[in-house]
Amino acid sequence: MIEHGYEAVAHEAGLPELPNLVTVMNSLWPHQPVSQFLHRWENVVFAWALAAGLVAVFAWSTRRLTLVPGRLQTALETIVEALEGLVTSILGHEGRRYTPFIGTLFLYIVTMNLAGLVPGLKSPTSSLNTTVGLAVCVFLYVQWTGIRRQGVAAYVKHFLGEPLFLAPLNVVLHVLGECIKPLSLSLRLFANITGEDLTIYYLIGLGLMCVGGTLLAGPPFQTLFYPLAIMFSLIQALVFSLLSTVYISLMLPHEHGQH
């Protein structure tokens, strides 16, 4: 790809990826500590920048909420209401309590997934470190929810399982199960978004190959993939959020907790 006019950057998994603002800055000023630092923490930089953007949009739009909403308020309320409906459809009336966590998770992941479609930006979720970081948060929140809602005794009993003489085996199985949950969440999201970014990378490369590197840009084949990429981004965020909601529901001390 290098000979066709754009430089592939080494992905953390050894895969090629499109250049972004940070990698460009690093290639321009490779010896500057700032560009080195940003490049070192590239995924965190993009993730935090997107998070700051989310906070800014919500904070700005909720400054003056009115009973008759404007366009932006309507859009945000629609999103919030849909996410609340999604969570409460799984967790019942108790879902309201967990809506901020699950809703934020969904919005954050969607934003990070879609960032890869914007030239100059990068999907932080194409890094396993990002997805594992989120999965760790979900894991801790689920366990905390289990301890808080069931009590320590019931939580431990849940791990011991029945019959009691199989407790050592049950504990191992349950602990493994609880650890595999965030692992599967993080791997699924990471693999899908990495695949999505790779597809875009190769479609851009295909366009450049068509013009034989004679022009600055080739036919934008990647545009054809964008609708599918948007759908994948939404679906992956939804899957991550829904599975997190299900894990929470399994920890609640009512009929949802029977498993």
Binding site: V55, F58, A59, P100, T104, N129, V132, G133, V136, C137
Partner: peptide
């Protein structure tokens, strides 16, 4: 990096709870 992402997400949850979820809900 994992811990930084986790910390960032926790802060984001807190901020959005404050600026998005509570007012909008």
């Amino acid at each position: 990096e994992i811990l930084t992402h986790a910390l960032g997400f926790v802060i984001l949850v807190w901020l959005l709870r404050r600026f998005a979820w509570q007012p909008l809900l």
